[in-house]
Design a protein around this nucleic acid. Structure first.
Lengths: 247, 247
DNA sequence: GTCTATACAACGATAGAC
DNA sequence: GTCTATCGTTGTATAGAC
């Protein structure tokens, strides 16, 4: 568990939460150590990274169902027999990926709710935090979004519950601001859904942001500034995000 | 080709454009008559509807790749041999679905650009029109969104081009309003992308709207009213959509 | 712990009877 | 125009050598 950084930047977020590198894959290994035949962590961690990375490359371009384990074997450089020392079955591989991501999101969300922030700062933290997560775990998010319907019903429900919980964070912050008379909002739940949908665009429509040459900070400021305008927050027009508005 | 209705309602849109019933499936049949072995329209149209409807039911719940032609055969009530009188191959079936939808969207968009509307009315027409389309062709939209990466690169590009063209409609309307000094907007392209993303939520997150008991008119008004707030359009707070704001 | 070789079920697709 | 029967291929998964 980590602390939310005081400074809001991708670099500070990257330092506060371990979502890449050897330390990250070590945590992934620990999370389903029991479902794996290989006991030696040093060898398991390296191969897990190979398998997951290859899965993302193949599934996120042609689709998980269209990816065969022969594809995965040649892309990861691990033989078909070797794969089964790590994954149990093809469907379990997808299930594990969803489980790991959901676990991480839960952890970050759980830490956020303990923070005592005023409504504006809270909304900023949620928006920037989720976008930083999506940036660092981009292929994980995209995979889980696109392949969710391939999982069993229980897991689909857990993913939907998580999304509702995330919406709930936004709703609570909006309602707090409405109570303060800082915000005006007729339907906080619908507005929260809109924000969540816009955040998810960052991984769903990566091609478009690349084409438009929009970077993460610009997109975060765009969502946040527009949200304050919708909430009719005073001072919103001046760029209340505290970060330069995109040109 | 049809005329855009003066009144903005799903019923008026439904009357203006033929997107359901026998007449609709007849148009679908005409659109790829040459790729089909069956010549008798009366029998072909009925089976086409069965095949497409069954495909949507299966693909939109478990995924197109995970759906076997044996599944499709039993769901549609047409034998495996019979299917091949209509579809050429499994991949071509997905390709045809994307082609039909893109064709329809192009037609509606093409008709819209010929209209001479002021910026606010134009934005309203685009938002409501696209949502009405998504409502009537819901399974088509969802299928094309989720299965796009299974199609060949050329077709993926055409789908992305269409989305950029749709964003372009919004950008033009926003820019016209900025020129008129009706709107304030620093980055019309990014705002247009946000709107498109929010519109697509209507078919992507159907479960959530159902859970929240949000209907189409409420969602349309939500997007439109918030857009006017973001554009700092005077009178936006009063619910400029002309339709009662959701409770 | 990783590999090659293989089992065998399920797939897309087609031929030919009706 | 639609069906049943069947083809060859490819898929997931495993056994057993190393």
């Amino acid at each position: 568990m980590a602390d939310w950084p005081e400074e809001i930047s991708l670099e500070a977020f990257r330092r506060a939460w371990v979502l890449e590198g050897e330390e990250f894959w070590n945590k992934v290994f620990e999370m389903h150590r029991d479902k794996i035949q290989i006991k030696n962590p040093r060898v398991a961690i390296g191969n897990l990274e190979k398998i997951f990375t290859a899965t993302f490359k193949l599934a996120n371009s042609k689709g998980f169902q269209a990816m065969s384990l022969r594809d995965l074997s040649s892309e990861s450089g691990i033989s078909m027999g070797g794969l089964y020392a790590y994954i149990g079955s093809k469907n379990e591989l997808a299930s594990v990926i969803e489980g790991v991501l959901r676990n991480y999101i839960d952890e970050v969300i759980g830490e956020l709710v303990t923070k005592d922030l005023d409504p504006v700062d809270r909304l900023r933290a949620i928006i920037y935090g989720e976008l930083f997560m999506m940036q660092l775990l981009n292929p994980w998010y995209y995979f889980c979004y696109m392949e969710l319907k391939g999982l069993d019903r229980e897991q689909q429900q857990q993913a939907m519950d998580l999304e509702l919980r995330f919406d709930g964070l936004l709703v609570d912050a909006i309602n707090a601001g409405v109570k303060n008379k800082q915000f005006v909002c007729a339907n906080p739940e619908l507005l929260a859904s809109s924000i969540t949908g816009q955040l998810q665009q960052w991984h769903l429509k990566h091609w478009k942001f690349k084409l438009r040459e929009v970077n993460l900070e610009q997109y975060a400021a765009h969502i946040f500034d527009n949200l304050l305008l919708v909430l009719q927050y005073r001072g919103a027009e001046a760029g209340a995000s505290g970060i330069a508005q995109s040109a």
